[in-house]
């Protein structure tokens, strides 16, 4: 019984494992028929190999294509998009980032999201100064008519001896007050 052709094919490719490899080798030494089969197989292989493409032909545009790819992938402004990028961060950095996030959250709550009483609970030292008694509206002196209230204007005109009658459009005047 001679060698199975499939085994011979694997032997030719150098893919046959021991102990079969040695067995096939020994058999070939004294079996001319199998040697011929192997020769035929090698010839066929050579024939198939004729259709291989030459490296220099294949590499004709290798550098040009690399340049294109490099510009496309690694050129200016073409980095990995934010969502595709894997975030790499050391542990201390992560902790600092988390602390900053908490600080901003709590800070926002303290300064904008709470009334005076809550502020007093959270940050007593700050609430003393932030009390409404200590906050006054500061204006830069009276310059234009917009700075006076209607009452002040009326009082001023009254003092100058004018009789001013003011009514609101579309409203019936109420009954005369007093006698």
């Amino acid at each position: 019984m001679c060698i199975d052709l499939q085994m011979l094919s694997a032997y030719m490719d150098g893919e046959l494992k021991e102990p079969y490899k040695t067995q096939v080798k020994e058999h070939l030494e004294h079996c001319a028929a199998c040697r011929n089969l192997l020769e035929d197989m090698k010839k066929l292989d050579e024939k198939i190999q004729k259709d291989v493409f030459l490296e220099e032909e294949l590499n004709r545009n290798k550098d040009a294509i690399y340049k294109k790819l490099d510009a496309k992938c690694f050129g200016e402004g073409r980095q990995v998009s934010f969502f595709r990028r894997k975030i790499q961060m050391s542990i201390p950095t992560a902790i600092t980032a988390a602390a900053a996030a908490v600080f901003i959250f709590v800070g926002g709550f303290v300064f904008f999201g709470s009334n005076a009483k809550e502020t007093n609970d959270i940050l007593p030292s700050f609430s003393v100064n932030a009390d409404s008694e200590n906050v006054r509206l500061v204006s830069s002196g009276k310059n234009s008519l917009d700075d006076y209230t209607l009452e002040e204007i009326l009082q001023y005109l009254d003092g100058k001896g004018y009789q001013v009658d003011i009514s609101i459009k579309g409203l019936q005047p109420l009954e005369e007050k007093g006698e």
Binding site: D51, F53, E55, L58, N59, K62, Y66, L69, D70, C73
Partner: peptide
């Protein structure tokens, strides 16, 4: 970038051979 270059250089010809066939 460096890995990409290495992989490109090592495999371009092989890929071309396979795709050409």
């Amino acid at each position: 970038r460096e890995d990409f270059r290495k992989v490109y250089d090592a495999n371009y010809t092989l890929l071309m051979q396979v795709v050409m066939h």
